[in-house]
Amino acid sequence: MTDKIALIDYGAGNLHSVHNALKAAGATGVSITSDPDAIAGVDRIVLPGVGAFGACCDALMAIDGMVDALEQRVRHGGVPFLGICVGMQLLADIGVEHGTHHGLGWIGGTVEAIETVSPDIKIPHMGWNDVQVRGDAPLLENGEAYYLHGYHFDVTDKADIAATTRHGETLVAAVARNNILGVQFHPEKSQRYGLEFLARFLEWRP
């Protein structure tokens, strides 16, 4: 795979695990970058994320010009984009973890705490669980993937939901709109399922 792929470094992702998974899936042109100017020439963008919504959002927006560069390349340039875990949640309008924080607003919705009334349902949602594809969602297949999150994406337009999982309640496992795809699970920790998913992302021509 010779596409130039930007793996965005904003201090809030397990970059090396994602980088290694992309390489294992067939990518050869992956660069870890925090330089907005480098975004203009890439063919694909991956935004990882681990931690609290607000902290991740602040870290991303603290890089001068990064959000504008992503907007230009993804929303206007149409390059394939993948958000992973909090990187997916940042697509939302708002996150309410430790206060109210504005996200990128690319896919409408709010990131809220997972709630459960059953003591058998542990929070955070951690470990292997199903991925149930909805409709003709791009790249995704039914299977099992690895999750680790205490907050979930409550999506405004249900047509943007690409897959769900079940943990006490139905939770969004993936969102998709045009060239934008986000997954709540960690493909880099999801073994064969995750690598096969990343391989499809590397071939995706939305």
Rank of each mutant, 00 (worst) to 15 (best):
5 I>P: 14
6 A>I: 08
7 L>R: 11
8 I>H: 07
8 I>D: 12
9 D>Y: 12
11 G>Y: 06
12 A>N: 04
13 G>P: 01
14 N>D: 13
14 N>Y: 06
15 L>Q: 10
16 H>G: 01
17 S>N: 15
21 A>F: 11
21 A>Y: 10
23 K>L: 15
24 A>D: 14
25 A>S: 14
27 A>F: 04
28 T>R: 14
33 T>Q: 04
34 S>D: 15
36 P>A: 09
37 D>L: 13
38 A>M: 05
40 A>W: 00
40 A>N: 05
42 V>D: 11
46 V>S: 11
47 L>E: 12
48 P>R: 01
50 V>P: 09
50 V>H: 08
51 G>T: 00
51 G>A: 05
53 F>T: 01
53 F>M: 06
54 G>H: 01
54 G>L: 04
57 C>F: 00
59 A>N: 14
66 M>H: 05
72 Q>H: 12
73 R>E: 07
74 V>N: 09
74 V>G: 07
75 R>Q: 15
75 R>K: 14
80 P>H: 03
80 P>N: 06
81 F>P: 12
82 L>S: 10
85 C>H: 05
85 C>D: 13
89 Q>F: 03
89 Q>I: 00
89 Q>G: 04
91 L>G: 07
91 L>C: 09
92 A>T: 05
94 I>E: 15
96 V>F: 04
96 V>R: 10
97 E>R: 01
98 H>R: 13
99 G>V: 01
99 G>M: 03
101 H>N: 06
101 H>W: 13
103 G>E: 11
104 L>C: 08
105 G>M: 03
107 I>Y: 04
108 G>T: 00
111 V>E: 12
112 E>H: 00
112 E>M: 11
118 S>Y: 01
118 S>V: 00
122 K>S: 11
125 H>W: 04
125 H>T: 02
127 G>N: 07
128 W>L: 06
129 N>K: 04
130 D>E: 15
131 V>R: 05
133 V>N: 03
133 V>A: 08
138 P>D: 08
150 G>A: 15
151 Y>K: 00
156 T>F: 06
160 D>E: 13
162 A>G: 13
162 A>R: 08
164 T>I: 14
164 T>W: 02
169 E>K: 13
171 L>T: 10
172 V>L: 04
173 A>Y: 10
173 A>C: 10
178 N>E: 15
179 N>P: 13
180 I>Q: 02
180 I>H: 01
182 G>W: 02
186 H>W: 07
187 P>L: 09
191 Q>W: 00
192 R>Y: 02
194 G>F: 08
196 E>R: 09
196 E>Y: 01
197 F>D: 09
197 F>N: 02
198 L>I: 04
198 L>A: 07
204 W>R: 00
204 W>C: 02
206 P>L: 09
206 P>A: 15
